[in-house]
Nucleic acid binder design. Sequence first.
DNA 1: AGTTTTTATGTACAGATGTACACATAGTTG
DNA 2: CAACTATGTGTACATCTGTACATAAAAACT
Lengths: 203, 203
Amino acid sequence: MTTTDSESPHATVDERRGRNGGSRKDPGRRERIARAAISVVAERGIEKITHRAVAAAAGVPLGSTTYHFATLDDLLAVALRQAAQDNVAELREWADGMDSGVDLPAVLTDLVLRYLGPERERTVVEHELYVAALHRPALRAASTEWDGALRDLFTAYTDEVSGKMLAAVFCGLLWQGIVREPLPDRDEIETIFRRAVGDTAHG
Amino acid sequence: MTTTDSESPHATVDERRGRNGGSRKDPGRRERIARAAISVVAERGIEKITHRAVAAAAGVPLGSTTYHFATLDDLLAVALRQAAQDNVAELREWADGMDSGVDLPAVLTDLVLRYLGPERERTVVEHELYVAALHRPALRAASTEWDGALRDLFTAYTDEVSGKMLAAVFCGLLWQGIVREPLPDRDEIETIFRRAVGDTAHG
DNA sequence: AGTTTTTATGTACAGATGTACACATAGTTG
DNA sequence: CAACTATGTGTACATCTGTACATAAAAACT
């Protein structure tokens, strides 16, 4: 969770001002607005994003969003890019906590269920980003970055072809599971992954 | 521009003559508006849909859309449901034209490339529908119907587990391919499908 | 000190949007 | 024929939206 302040002029002060409610000079405000935008997308959908909705979610006045972001598209682009980068970072962190001898179908099933359950908001935003990128070329890089990270991750544990195949299975299961009302069964997902890797011994 | 010449006067008025008080001067108008809504979603995204944009695309006045559809959400729901049903019907038609002895990875690759190429608009709308359903329960049935049709189709040519697995691969490949700028290579997709079905004889 | 720059905020305004609604017309019914 | 109803259309209006901008205060700078 390293803060990328490439656009803020300076990152000298990282402590909140104790008095004054921290309302005057607030170095994290820009990022906080972006995260508020993410939560708005997660809760209400990308079509409901407005300057006012984001400002309300972030607890800042309207003028603050228009000051930190030139246009609403900029705000959306920054927010979704940050969401995608967070997702990739979290994915790599998860991958680092695994050794290479694990039971791949089992851990992939865990990952699917986590994205559909506790991390549902994150998954929803990621999907909104995907579709938004269809009509906004500025967002495509963030979308394909996620795909690449997923593919690289799976490739590292198998080979190139199987990695791509498993990435597709993973993507498809997420895609199908995110709209289903009851969460899919754990055994069902694991069975699918086992069939994908050609493992017929389990059952 | 008064009444557009090609749509209202000629054709299909007489087939409504007869019984019932349901008198329609233009029986196809409602459906035509829904299809115009689909094209607007395909071209500009679901967030850009408005009464006026749909009316312009359909070549009807603004009042016509508000007359045939109580609210904009209704219009969207009807349009996306119709799009999903069209997709399912087209998919079943495609399946009927195949015998059971085909080379499954090859034909699945054809299908993926068709959805990413000539039928890209259809695929885009389907994905917009998926994401829209995340925040609109009224659209979920249409989304899951597509999933079910896909799964049933693939299951019919293999078995239940493999069918679900292949449906996930198919979904994932569409999902990833729709945002990629150059269309994915044919051999790459076919190789992935062959690996998925456990066919190692091919190179 | 004073001056300039950056950050923050409230407000105003033009444009777009959903939708109601009054009017118009065609089709049906008596 | 006339009365009635379903269908179609143009317009008005309240509301929401993005964004510009004047103002102000804090920080940076000389």
